[in-house]
Simulated scan of single mutants.
Amino acid sequence: MHKDLSPRDRDMATLDWQGAAGVLTAGGAWDAHGAGPLARRLTIAFPEARPWRLDTAGISRMDTAGALLLLHVIERLEDAGGTVDISALPQRHRELLELVRRPGPLQPPAAAKPLTPLARLGEVTLAILRHFYAILTFTGEVARHAAPLLLRPWQVRWASVINEIHAAGVLAIPIVALLSFLIGVVIAYQAGATLDRFGANIFLADMVGIVTLREMAPMITAIVIAGRTGSSYAARIGTMRVTQEVDALRALALPPIEMLVIPRILALIIALPLLTVLANAAGLFGGLLVSHEMFGLDLSVAFDRLEQMKNTHLWVGLIKAPVFAAVIALIGCHEGMKVRGSAAEVGQATTSSVVQAIFWVIVLDAIFSIVFRELDL
């Protein structure tokens, strides 16, 4: 008996069997291309269960796709009650059949062994150290690109700086002024409720002035900018990373640090002190308004008390602002540049930039307080 199950084409797989001799002959190209037509047309009906001998000497080439189809034919023969002798197959064909016959892991992978508290602590410590190293590396790269611009300021992209000042400074005026006004109101109300018991309302002006100028105005402004502008830096640069705009800048021999990072840092260093001055004015206005309306503090007396205060309180607050600005901009840009290729990473970078910036603003404010206390400022 002789049946041809495939077109006789040297580029296609063929499969013939001779029932009388019990020989199953495979020929042609048993690869992903040649075995496709045979796989679609293959319908084998065996008249009897008997031993078969497989002959693959006529196969010109075979890959795992062809070996999988040949293994399927063997299994069909064995399911019909016959046996298949593959001892005469070339070594390379037997190895391919063994490869596709080898079962994968039937058991699910074992659950990861939970880390011990000490191992978990070590893992967290290494992650923190890697993060600090990445920030230091990024800061060094920014400094390397910024140093030559200090000697050649005309090469700074001032148009980008001005645009960023408008976005980070001018557009932030309403929210900074409103929050600073409310903070001044809260400070005056809380302090006045205590000082009023002792008839010391006159010191409300000193309280509002010192707390607002030294601490609350620069810190609240920095926190607002960290949430508003630092997050936008991370999101915008991260989106540019996803859309490969940063890679396009590198392909055009334009350093992304000079194009994207340095203008934002300069803009925030300029804008944040100006916003701090605005916050000082709004906070003092809110505090003195409450002191006058609720606790009867005469405004002329309040202004006299403020004039007698040392200018040190104002300058202490303004010295903090550029440092806060540099840290916020560096963290936002660094998180944006860390994004690799997904929208989820952009969201994570935005969240991380806000959390880190607020954390470091508070830490730096505490450090400034200690240093200025030691310097008696």
Rank of each mutant, 00 (worst) to 15 (best):
126 L>G: 10
127 A>Q: 09
127 A>M: 03
127 A>N: 08
128 I>M: 12
128 I>D: 09
129 L>P: 05
129 L>D: 05
129 L>W: 09
129 L>E: 05
129 L>S: 10
131 H>F: 15
131 H>G: 13
131 H>C: 10
132 F>E: 02
132 F>Q: 06
132 F>D: 02
133 Y>N: 06
134 A>C: 05
134 A>F: 10
135 I>Q: 13
136 L>N: 15
137 T>N: 11
137 T>Y: 07
137 T>P: 08
137 T>M: 04
137 T>W: 06
138 F>G: 08
138 F>S: 06
140 G>E: 01
141 E>T: 12
141 E>Y: 13
141 E>L: 13
142 V>F: 12
142 V>M: 07
142 V>W: 12
142 V>H: 11
145 H>Y: 13
145 H>P: 13
146 A>P: 14
149 L>C: 14
149 L>Y: 15
149 L>F: 15
149 L>V: 12
150 L>T: 07
150 L>S: 07
151 L>Q: 12
152 R>P: 13
153 P>L: 10
153 P>S: 12
153 P>V: 10
154 W>M: 01
155 Q>V: 06
155 Q>H: 14
156 V>R: 00
158 W>A: 01
158 W>G: 00
159 A>F: 01
160 S>N: 09
161 V>K: 00
161 V>G: 02
162 I>M: 02
162 I>V: 10
163 N>V: 00
163 N>A: 04
164 E>P: 00
164 E>M: 04
164 E>C: 01
165 I>H: 00
166 H>W: 10
166 H>L: 04
167 A>H: 01
167 A>M: 04
168 A>Y: 00
169 G>F: 04
169 G>M: 03
170 V>H: 05
170 V>I: 15
171 L>T: 05
171 L>F: 15
171 L>P: 07
172 A>V: 01
172 A>L: 02
172 A>I: 00
172 A>F: 04
173 I>G: 04
173 I>R: 01
174 P>V: 01
174 P>D: 01
176 V>D: 08
176 V>P: 14
176 V>G: 13
176 V>M: 08
176 V>A: 07
177 A>F: 15
177 A>C: 14
178 L>R: 07
178 L>T: 09
179 L>P: 14
180 S>M: 06
181 F>N: 11
181 F>I: 07
181 F>V: 11
183 I>S: 10
183 I>F: 08
183 I>R: 06
183 I>P: 11
184 G>F: 07
184 G>N: 06
185 V>M: 11
186 V>T: 11
186 V>W: 05
187 I>E: 05
187 I>W: 06
187 I>C: 09
188 A>I: 08
189 Y>I: 04
189 Y>Q: 09
190 Q>M: 08
190 Q>H: 05
190 Q>V: 11
190 Q>C: 03
191 A>K: 07
193 A>N: 11
193 A>R: 12
194 T>R: 12
194 T>Q: 15
196 D>N: 11
196 D>M: 03
197 R>N: 08
197 R>Y: 10
198 F>N: 09
198 F>Q: 06
199 G>E: 03
200 A>W: 15
201 N>G: 11
201 N>P: 07
201 N>W: 06
201 N>I: 09
201 N>C: 03
202 I>R: 12
202 I>K: 09
203 F>H: 04
203 F>L: 04
203 F>E: 00
203 F>A: 02
203 F>D: 00
204 L>F: 10
